[in-house]
């Protein structure tokens, strides 16, 4: 019984030492990573204008202003005006359309493409950049963001 208690005590000390070593190594690695990573920007720097992230951000603003009434805040087709439309507004989270087609629907509206006539043509209201941006936003919410 005495020998067993001694072995258990030894095992506990080994485990404790190993845990301490792991914690120390982790702390050292974190400190090293922080030292090598660039400091957070505090000068109000913007995303590069041509980046996808910037397009998605801008597209979100376009979406919130023009699309949310019908397609909803969650882009699931359940906006407050959705009940006026039959067929109902598309669930954009489940859209399988590519960028070109999404942009075409936005620009020309649903009726011109033989789809839901409730989707207005936005080509005369939105700029090309806004249409591209909102297309990027739609792609980002349906999980096909590239």
């Amino acid at each position: 019984m005495q020998g067993k208690r001694t072995m258990n005590g030894l095992a506990v000390r080994w485990l404790r030492a190993a845990a301490l070593a792991a914690v120390a190594a982790c702390g050292a690695w974190t400190a090293l990573a922080e030292e090598n990573s660039p400091p957070p920007r505090t000068d109000g720097a913007l995303l590069p204008r041509d980046s996808t992230d910037a397009a998605v951000f801008r597209g979100g603003l376009v979406y919130a202003n023009y699309c949310v009434t019908c397609h909803g805040i969650n882009a699931d087709g359940n906006g407050r005006a959705a009940r006026l439309h039959n067929p109902r507004p598309a669930n954009l989270r489940a859209s399988d359309k590519n960028d070109a087609y999404i942009g075409l629907i936005v620009r020309r509206g649903g009726e011109a493409l033989g789809r839901a006539p409730g989707m207005p043509p936005w080509g005369e209201e939105l700029t090309d950049e806004q249409i591209n941006d909102v297309t990027a936003f739609v792609r980002s919410v349906n999980g096909q963001h590239r």
Partner: peptide, 19 residues
């Protein structure tokens, strides 16, 4: 010179005139 799409969500009589 561009399109409009008038609608109302008032419960008494919601309507959508389309584009």
């Amino acid at each position: 010179a561009f399109s409009h799409n008038i609608f109302s969500l008032t419960d008494a009589m919601p309507f959508d005139l389309g584009t």
